[in-house]
Amino acid sequence: MAPAQPSVISSWFSSHCLTHLACVTLTFSPPLTDPTQMMSSEHLTCGWLQQLLVVLLKLCLTCAGPLRPLNRTECTAKGTASYILVFTGHWSPQAFPKQYPLFRPPAQWSKLIAVSHNHFFRLWEEGAPASAGVQNFAELGVTVELMKAAKEARKRRMVGAMYRTAGIPNGIGHSSTELLMHPRSPLLSLMVKMIPSPDWFIGIDSLNLCEGSKWKQEVTIDLQPYDAGTDSGFTFSSPNFPTSPPENITKITSQMPNHPANSFYYPRLKELPPIATIKITQQSRSHDRQTSMSNHILPNSVSPRRFSETPLDCEVSLWSSWGLCLGPCSRGGVRHRTRYILLRPANAGTPCPELEEQAECVPHSCMKLQ
């Protein structure tokens, strides 16, 4: 017989605590006959039973522990399911023109880390602090701590299997791997680091591939970038500047962080175009199939989805101070000021305004020519 889950034991134990306490109260109440003795003994017995009640109640709550919701739908599928997971990067200068990294290093994707698990494990979670493993992966692309935590959870039967795909040396490209999902671990979580970036990644948190007694046939998810909350950089090439104290994992949008220096700040867009896509397709497990798809880079004939180009408006600096007036103040003398381009326009964005301006001199700014 399989051991009961902690959540079931906790719920049963908590629901029976008051019944047991009532039995204890009745059992320890001694019979008394003398009225005087009865009155004094009643006070002693009441006080003693109250203390016992408090002690036993604390014991019950301690043993029961935190209650977990019991309304989760368990996977009742018979047997395992085999899937092909395809990761497609859409990180292009057309879709994301602002500060697009062209060299040292150019835009690219790290290896993909995927874990199958149950409801008692989280690889990462939006709105929660990043673990040490998530921080190391999001900042440096190092997988040691992340895989160590997954292996420890696997010993406790919270994780089923771990998978990897090869990295992609460009912002646009594909990688894939084979998944074998078990009813005990029907959830899938994954992460891919954006290179270069301070601590940005894309991922999926606890995707359930099982619906009751059936495995899903196909799932496609458009992905957006996330900030791990451990580095305070705004741009792809920002130097390492740790966030102290660390913040929670948050989704990066076209408006947040609300700062012009942010590489994903596109105030004209309601939302960012998908920077990557995950497609998971169930496959029939034939015994005569010999070629494994694991870590296989798909051929270039598989073209990525096409998205509309993102317009990038020109950004210019503030005006410099006015220069000295050249020429006589009373006969057409002029003064100048300038500004420079911070960000050149792209994809039919607003063109740059004039970078130089002149105005008539005023008497106090005149410079007499010798």
Rank of each mutant, 00 (worst) to 15 (best):
C46Y: 15
L355Q: 06
H182W: 07
A149V: 03
G133H: 00
I202Y: 06
I275E: 02
L209W: 02
Q358D: 12
S317G: 01
C17I: 02
P169S: 08
L52A: 10
Y100V: 00
P351M: 08
A128I: 03
Q50P: 05
G212F: 08
E247W: 03
V144S: 12
P351G: 07
L209P: 05
S197H: 04
L49K: 14
P93C: 08
L207E: 15
S301Q: 10
F121C: 10
T253V: 08
T253P: 11
Y226H: 00
P257Y: 06
L44N: 14
L57G: 14
H16M: 12
Q283A: 12
F234T: 03
T88N: 06
T350K: 13
I297H: 10
Y163E: 11
A128M: 05
E178Y: 07
H364F: 06
F120G: 09
Y266G: 08
R339K: 01
T80L: 10
Y226T: 02
G127P: 00
V219N: 09
A81K: 04
L85W: 04
N295M: 15
E139A: 10
W319L: 02
P106N: 07
C23M: 05
F201A: 03
C63P: 01
T27S: 11
S254Y: 05
G333S: 05
T177A: 07
S317Q: 02
V86G: 09
R164S: 15
I195S: 11
I280D: 01
T27G: 12
L61G: 07
S294F: 03
E218H: 12
T76D: 14
A128V: 00
T19R: 09
L112A: 15
D313L: 02
F96N: 11
K98Q: 13
S294C: 01
Y226R: 00
I113S: 01
Q358R: 10
R305G: 11
R344T: 06
E42G: 13
Q5W: 04
G327D: 12
T36Y: 13
D313E: 02
R268T: 14
P246H: 03
A22D: 08
T143A: 11
T291D: 14
Y266F: 08
Y265K: 00
T25P: 06
S14M: 15
L67D: 06
H119P: 00
D199F: 03
T230P: 03
M181E: 12
T36G: 04
F307Q: 12
T277S: 13
D34Q: 00
F28M: 08
Q108A: 15
F264Q: 07
V8W: 10
L44W: 08
D222P: 01
M256T: 08
R305D: 11
A114Y: 01
L57P: 01
E42F: 15
Q224D: 06
V302I: 03
A228P: 04
G212V: 08
F234A: 09
